[in-house]
Design a protein around this nucleic acid. Sequence first.
DNA 1: CCTCTTTTCGGAAATTAATTACGTAATAAA
DNA 2: TTTATTACGTAATTAATTTCCGAAAAGAGG
Lengths: 306, 306
Amino acid sequence: MCPPICFEAQFVTFLRQGAICMTSETNLLSLLERQLPSLNKSESKVAQAILQNPENATRSSIASLATLAGVSEPSVNRFCKKFGATGFPDFKLRLARSLASGVRYVSRAVEFSDDINTFPRKLFDNAISALMTAREDLPLAAIERAVDHIAQARRVFFFGLGTSAAVARDAEHKFFRFNVPVSTHEDPMMLRMLSASGGVGDVFFFISHTGRTRVLVEAAELARQTEATVVSLTHEDSPLAAQSHCCINVDVEEDTDQYMPMTSRLVQLVILDVLASGVTLRRGESFTPYLARIKDSLKDTRFPTS
Amino acid sequence: MCPPICFEAQFVTFLRQGAICMTSETNLLSLLERQLPSLNKSESKVAQAILQNPENATRSSIASLATLAGVSEPSVNRFCKKFGATGFPDFKLRLARSLASGVRYVSRAVEFSDDINTFPRKLFDNAISALMTAREDLPLAAIERAVDHIAQARRVFFFGLGTSAAVARDAEHKFFRFNVPVSTHEDPMMLRMLSASGGVGDVFFFISHTGRTRVLVEAAELARQTEATVVSLTHEDSPLAAQSHCCINVDVEEDTDQYMPMTSRLVQLVILDVLASGVTLRRGESFTPYLARIKDSLKDTRFPTS
DNA sequence: CCTCTTTTCGGAAATTAATTACGTAATAAA
DNA sequence: TTTATTACGTAATTAATTTCCGAAAAGAGG
């Protein structure tokens, strides 16, 4: 057995030989793409073969992949080790995981060269990846405090502008069920006046992707000067967050589509679902008949199921 | 080589022997859990060993897993085949995929016993899984036709009620950018009157989870009697779909949360993103400065980034 | 309770796959 | 041109998986 120092030396050698470091979270596919230019001949053959049909690569043996790439089996093996795997099977496993995470490209903008077969998938990929990222790092403490505030609220106001107005509207459709007066407003004058009118037990819930919209920040300032509680669903490092008693951080990597917000609002919506569920749980099991009654009230508005 | 009939006979035999059918999308972990009671002694040992630490199972060889489960290697192999894999490595791959999808349980409702550490994750899991399911089966043809209609439209009306009203509002915020008059309405009277007022080039876009809301279906009928085009984003087998020239099927497995719609609207939103992107692509690259101008118009409403 | 049938399961061989060792060719450096 | 280094493949080795077959256990019928 080697003493520890020996292992270390081996590891240094290993790095020298060009091992490619990868955090466990990085997507293997995109790593391959990025590294492609820096690989040597046979390695890049292997990389191309894999990228060309990654799904297939996870199913093949080292022999068939080697044939496909036009290299020898040891080359494939070396390739795998270079990318941090212990060997070929391990590499396949990592690859499968990357594929299954479903999001082939970490986050890719739609391009004008895309066609119907590519861009819808990209958009779904982006949406999924945004939710997965958010899931990994949920601000549970803030969520819990927000639930506390809402569950005890006398009134709740949801304020959002632009895309966030739709989110606020959605929130209104959820939270009215809790026996608390809920409203949404978009008129800046109303925002200011309502904010200034806040009192104990009022919750002003601000929704904003940037957290920098003047109208909202100023309304939050006004609300802050009252006895009311200011909750925000926005980016942590923003003027709006600074004005909040409780900020639920939504730090979605900037939307890849340049011209329309896409993914951030999805995360906001799911977090609002979380809050609504949190309040429901707080209300306790005895509350469900009430929710059921609300739901049933819609029965007669629909055509019966055949 | 066997003639086809032989294969078929083999397949029947295979099923007789208790092969467990699994669509490619079902989560392997939950399948294992479900089937656990119906397995025989050694099989259930294997299943338990896997469920107890699935992550570890993907990393072990058939030998170590067999030892861990206290059975022989062939038993593990038979187990794998029973679950549709071609063998142990293939099974590991499927398992890895299931794990990586991150959504351990296909779709689980929040329960009153849940706490802050479990229910937010469940909701995110459900949302992600809904989007992943939808992504696998995108109605591309319908999407393409809808994009055609919208891209050529003279006017577009987005009609949705309840939760779908928020979705419609979101759509409005996207589609106004295309130089086409867009509006959203919730008043049933307005819906009827507007629908009846349709003409060539008008697109009536109905959004509904159930596709059975009377008000919407009736409005669609009225619109259908005009020269206008009726597009719907709803369930394929619904009265609303029946009234549509073009129905984009959203077939999200019924929301697990009993009292509030959760996941279906997310899919609807992303599909609307897809449509908006589709129209943008149709408009061509020369259109982007225009989009940029719209975006820039908001600059002065925000506090500058520090 | 016994016998026969069916199913379950593991041992060992056979097969297949992956890895290592080593040598040659190619490339870069001296 | 020589030497050192890296890149790559053949062949040998090792490991892992699968198949085959028989023994044991569990049920079915008498």
